[in-house]
Simulated assay, not measured.
Amino acid sequence: MDLLDDSAVDQRLTGVPEWRREGDEIRRTIKAPDFPTAIRIVDEVAVEAEKLNHHPDIDIRWRTLHLALSTHDAGGLTEMDFTLAARIDAIAASHT
């Protein structure tokens, strides 16, 4: 998978406005209405991540989820990160 240059990353971020760039990662925080919903979101993200064979870093703090995406084996951001980010956005929207 090819790394995206800064211009391509900036352009793709417009399609996932809840995400922000931090170095070689994109990050998003999701606030679920309660802890069980937060865990359901993580479960659904896990299913999508497995389908893509691309796995986010997830930190669970009660009902707040912090997610980070990067294509580690490529050394930065690729199209796969933005594909999964869009799927995570759809999952979050269905629960919040």
Rank of each mutant, 00 (worst) to 15 (best):
Q11Y: 08
W19V: 02
I41R: 05
T83M: 14
I58F: 09
D43H: 10
A93G: 13
E25P: 03
E50F: 07
S94Y: 02
D24K: 06
L69Y: 11
R28G: 12
P17A: 08
T83K: 15
I58W: 09
H95A: 05
G23R: 01
L13Y: 07
Q11K: 10
H95L: 10
I30H: 07
A92P: 02
H95S: 05
H95T: 03
V9C: 01
D73T: 12
V42W: 10
W19Y: 04
V45P: 00
I88K: 06
I88Q: 06
P17E: 03
V42F: 09
R21S: 03
R27G: 15
L13A: 04
E48H: 13
A85S: 14
A85K: 07
A38Y: 12
T37D: 05
T64E: 15
W62D: 11
A38C: 05
E44W: 05
M80S: 05
R87Y: 11
I41N: 00
V45E: 14
E18S: 02
I60C: 09
F82W: 09
I91G: 03
G23Y: 02
S70T: 09
I30V: 14
T71L: 01
L3H: 14
D24H: 13
S94L: 08
A74S: 13
E18G: 12
A68P: 10
E79F: 06
D57L: 11
T71N: 01
I39S: 05
A74Q: 15
R28M: 12
G23A: 06
T78Q: 02
L3P: 04
D10M: 09
S94W: 02
R12G: 04
H72N: 00
V16A: 05
I58G: 02
V47W: 07
E50A: 09
